[in-house]
């Protein structure tokens, strides 16, 4: 009987030590991190609000994380920076507002840590999400056409319609739905170009 408790207690200790060492201590270390105030008075990183927050939820529910990372490795370790995925390595402060985290571990698609800086155009994002083949031929990304209302030739295109470069099935324009707009707002916000001091250490 007593032996069972010793066995169970030893087993318990092994897991308790690792969660203390790997999760609780680093979390304690990050407690001191605060957003920085930029010269123009805004903060980095800023909380997600409105369309960005809703867009983040869509990013999560569509499972973008299974193909896209949001982390740039340091210079000299991989070619993340040389590929132009970021201007500096990612640091813990970049993720202060991320709940849940979306770091990701797969790069079937490119890194998205600074996609907002690399592709600032709403139109590009809309066309890319509507049909990735139009902007990136040979891409294996699924189409997210359900985030857009299709406008066919002959129909009147509303003012906020986005022109599709190659017509197919008579679709000339697309109009992002609320969800589409939110997702694009979130993607456009992804930007780690603010030079945090600790990223250059």
């Amino acid at each position: 009987m007593s032996r069972t408790f010793i066995l169970a207690f030893g087993i318990f200790l092994t897991i308790a030590s690792s969660i203390t060492g790997l999760v609780i201590i680093p979390n304690w270390q990050f407690q001191a991190l605060k957003p920085v105030v930029k010269l123009d008075g805004t903060r980095y990183p800023e909380v997600y609000f409105g369309d960005q927050a809703r867009g983040r939820e869509i990013y999560i529910d569509q499972g973008c994380i299974y193909c896209h990372t949001q982390q740039v490795r340091m210079k000299g370790y991989g070619a993340d920076i040389r590929r132009g995925w970021g201007t500096r390595r990612s640091v813990p402060r970049d993720y202060l507002m991320d709940r849940p985290h979306q770091l990701g571990t797969q790069r079937m698609g490119p890194d998205l840590a600074s996609i907002g800086a690399r592709q600032p155009s709403v139109d590009w994002h809309a066309i890319h999400l509507y049909n990735p083949q139009l902007t990136s031929p040979g891409s294996i990304m699924p189409r997210f056409e359900y985030f857009f209302r299709e406008v066919r030739s002959g129909e009147a295109a509303p003012a906020d319609a986005i022109k599709v470069p190659q017509q197919s099935n008579g679709v000339t324009h697309i109009v992002p739905t609320d969800r589409g707009r939110a997702l694009i707002a979130y993607l456009k916000r992804l930007n780690q170009s603010f030079p945090l001091p600790e990223a250059n250490q």
């Binding site: 318990f12 897991i15 308790a16 690792s18 969660i19 790997l22 999760v23 680093p26 979390n27 990050f30 813990p92 993720y95 202060l96 507002m97 991320d98 709940r99 849940p100 985290h101 770091l103 571990t105």
Partner: peptide
């Protein structure tokens, strides 16, 4: 049970966030 409960607490219940959550996730 310890694994599941502490990982859920650290991630989906939000006991830790940001990078520490990523560590909890992969732990």
């Amino acid at each position: 049970p310890i694994l599941v409960l502490s990982a859920e607490a650290c991630t989906n219940l939000g006991a830790v966030d940001g990078v520490a959550q990523a560590i909890a996730n992969w732990w």
